[in-house]
Design a protein around this nucleic acid. Structure first.
Length: 689
DNA sequence: TGGGTCACGGTTTTT
DNA sequence: CCGTGACCCA
């Protein structure tokens, strides 16, 4: 009898056929990971006879979820029953909390805030608490770490020993009370609160685990501590957890992903089976040889070797240029030639380690009249004009959302300044009311004496507008957008700014999207719409009519016939610096190389213009490690000579000035004056400033 | 209140 | 070099 498993190779088949007990599918780049996973899901449902209702498949991005859904559903013949739940971790958290957040004493009409909102809120809190010496991004990521380690603010404060961490914990505490008061949840909460509820309610945990009897996780190497704990709870009753990942492609450590999750899978889940997928259907032998050689320099790995299914192929090219201008011109001209030979531009991409390198490409490509598409940069929902609309919508969904109200209270300009906002904010805090309710309940005469007649009127107008719009939302959510623009006039406001035209176009796109969503689902509430879009990102428009340029991170999961990787230089790639994790840099190199199907060009330059100055750089150690050039002798951190008077920085001695410089093996022997304290130090131990 | 100038600092990014 | 936030004055 024909089976859907027939299309798989022996190892893929072994993985798909595995039914009960934990399974780790170690899937190398291009080894048919998605195919195996989707085939397994449809096999379980279509041939083993498992109810789709009892499966759960988790991914990291909406894009991956959408792709897998399409492919799996395409294979399942009888689609009469409920489709299997296949979504992102965060979406799962959202669905779960909609049903169960009451168990934490919270209402389920919460709204999700994104990282941008989080930072804005933190900025306000830091100001209020007068702790202004802490970096906002640092705070945001520390709070994220707290939540992912399940530390409550109280515990965090108690455990904090260093002064700085007491401050961080205090901000965390204020932040958490603030979002709880406004009934907001951040991305981490979607997972953290879900975990907490399951952890505290054993009956529910058993019930939920029994419901999701077959769990699959994609990109397992990217899971963090909390996601692992969540998975342990979800699979506690049956242990049927199947994860797919590649330890060599773990490139999100800086964001909390814990590579140990995949390395230790077999120990964490007893009796786990491991299946390795090492046949690569994407790239040539030449390309895979470079990738394999490079990644072998890492020590913390399970270990596997990709074998090409498509044969030798052409040699990997190296391109050496004087600087970034020559580099981008050379690439542009080569691409032009490919295009003239009939190569499809969507089969060509250029990758880089840091976004700053995109600039020279953009300039060079424009000069050479080469069409390109840049992936990354400002995301749609994070544009100021879109966030303004979203903030209005949020206030309409929940007038107690002070945070959103504050963003739009003087947008468009109503003559309400910082001072007036501060006064009303203070009054609201004293009365333990939201700002909206404070404006409504404060006597007009009191308000006038507080902020003056003009501002009082402006406040009253905002509240009246919001009331009007709320009733319109109830009447017809579809028509409400036009009244919204008539009443608020956000488009007019933006139209008069310098880049107004683009912004108005964006706003129209957003309104169109909103109307579309309502048309598709007339029962959609504003609140549901808001939560849906906050879990969405529109990075799925990669395929197009032009050459793509993007970061290596953004290219994960993609493949290109012709691939260029630029910036293969020490400092840029591997990117050296404080938190440099060389093994992760190398994995990033591995990911970059394995995006290429047949033609790979690695580019490096002698000097690059960066942060306002020109820097001399050496070629990347990765070129040697992947066997593409004779292994270079030890790296010299600075290739141009140090001379008397140069300022340098030493990890222990701090900043000093070079007094003497002599060539020595592997660099320079320097006599440095650290504030009167003279030391003889090798140049490899200092950084030029 | 809000426009203008100045100093500072600057990886990778999804949800 | 270029964008952001703090600060100052009309």
């Amino acid at each position: 009898m024909a089976s859907i498993l027939d299309g798989l190779n022996p190892n893929q088949r072994k993985a798909a056929e595995h039914i009960d007990g934990p399974l780790l599918i170690l899937a190398g780049a291009g080894s048919g990971k998605t195919k195996t996973l989707t085939t397994r899901l449809s096999y379980l449902i279509g041939e083993v006879g498992i109810d789709p209702f009892n499966t759960l498949t988790l991914t990291f991005t909406n894009k991956a979820a959408a792709e897998m859904r399409e492919r799996a559903l395409g294979m399942i013949e009888n689609r009469s029953s409920t489709p299997p739940l296949l979504c992102t971790f965060h979406k799962f958290g959202l669905l779960f909390l909609k049903f169960h957040i009451e168990k934490l004493g919270r209402k389920n009409n919460f709204v999700i805030i994104d990282s941008d909102d989080k930072k804005r809120l933190l900025r306000a809190i830091v100001k209020e608490l007068k702790i202004e010496d802490l970096n906002i991004s640092f705070l945001a990521s520390e709070i994220s770490k707290y939540k992912n380690s399940l530390l409550t603010p109280d515990v965090a404060i108690k455990k904090a020993e260093l002064e700085d961490y007491r401050k961080v914990a205090k901000v965390y505490s204020a932040y958490q009370s603030n979002i709880e008061e406004n009934n907001l949840v951040d991305f981490d909460d979607l997972l953290m609160l879900t975990y907490r509820i399951l952890d505290e309610n054993s009956k529910l945990r058993v019930e939920v685990s029994n419901r999701y009897r077959y769990i699959m996780v994609d990109e397992y190497q990217d899971t963090n501590e909390l996601q692992l704990k969540l998975l342990e709870h979800l699979s506690s009753e049956h242990n049927n957890l199947c994860v797919v990942g590649d330890d060599d492609q773990s490139i999100y450590g800086w964001r909390g992903a814990n590579i140990r999750n995949i390395l230790d899978f077999a120990e964490t889940f007893t009796d786990a089976k491991t299946v390795k997928l090492e046949t690569n259907y994407r790239s040539t032998e030449q390309i895979l040889e470079a990738a394999n050689k490079l990644i072998e320099h890492n020590s913390g790995r399970i270990g596997k070797k990709l074998e090409s299914h498509i044969g030798a192929g052409p040699k990997v090219n190296l391109q050496h240029s004087l600087d970034e201008v020559h580099e981008s011109r050379a690439i542009a001209r080569e691409i032009q030639e490919l295009l003239s030979k009939g190569v499809d531009s969507k089969d060509i991409a250029v990758l880089y380690r840091i976004n700053a390198l995109s600039r020279s490409l953009e300039e060079g490509f424009t000069k050479e009249k080469l069409n390109f598409k840049l992936i990354g940069g400002m995301r749609f929902y994070e544009r100021a004009e879109i966030k303004d609309i979203i903030s209005y919508f949020r206030v309409l969904a929940n007038q107690n959302d002070d945070f959103s109200l504050l963003r739009i209270i003087n947008k468009p300009k109503r003559g309400i300044g910082k001072a007036s906002v501060g006064k009303i904010h203070k009054l609201a805090d004293e009365n333990r009311l939201s700002i909206y309710d404070t404006i409504i309940s404060t006597k007009e005469s009191d308000m006038v004496s507080l902020v003056g007649k003009k501002v009082t009127n402006a406040f009253k107008k905002v509240v009246a507008d919001i009331k009007l719009l709320q009733s319109e939302v109830e009447r017809s959510i579809y028509d409400f957008v036009s009244l919204f623009e008539d009443t608020i006039g956000l488009k007019d406001y933006y139209a008069h700014l310098v880049d107004g035209q683009d912004r108005v176009l964006n706003m129209d796109e957003f309104y169109g999207y909103f109307r579309d969503a309502i048309k598709k689902n007339p029962d959609l509430t504003l609140e549901e719409f808001l939560n849906d879009i906050s879990l969405q990102s529109e990075q799925d428009q990669v395929e197009g009519e032009s050459v793509t340029i993007m970061s290596i991170h953004a290219a994960k999961g993609l493949e290109f016939e012709y691939l260029y990787v630029i910036g293969l230089e020490e400092e840029f790639f591997p990117l050296l610096g404080d938190g440099c994790n060389m093994e992760e840099e190398r994995r990033l190199g591995y990911v970059a190389i394995t995006r290429a199907k047949r033609h790979l060009t690695l580019c490096y330059v002698d000097s690059r213009f960066y942060k306002g100055r020109r820097k001399m750089i050496d070629k990347s150690r990765f070129l040697g490690e992947s066997g593409l050039i004779e292994s270079t002798s030890l790296k010299i951190t600075k290739s141009s000579a140090y001379k008397r008077g140069d300022l340098v920085k030493h990890k222990i001695f701090g900043i000093g000035r070079v007094q003497e410089s002599n060539k020595a093996s592997g660099g320079y022997k320097l006599l440095i004056n650290f504030g009167g304290n003279k030391k003889e130090i090798l140049s490899s131990f200092v950084q030029p400033i």
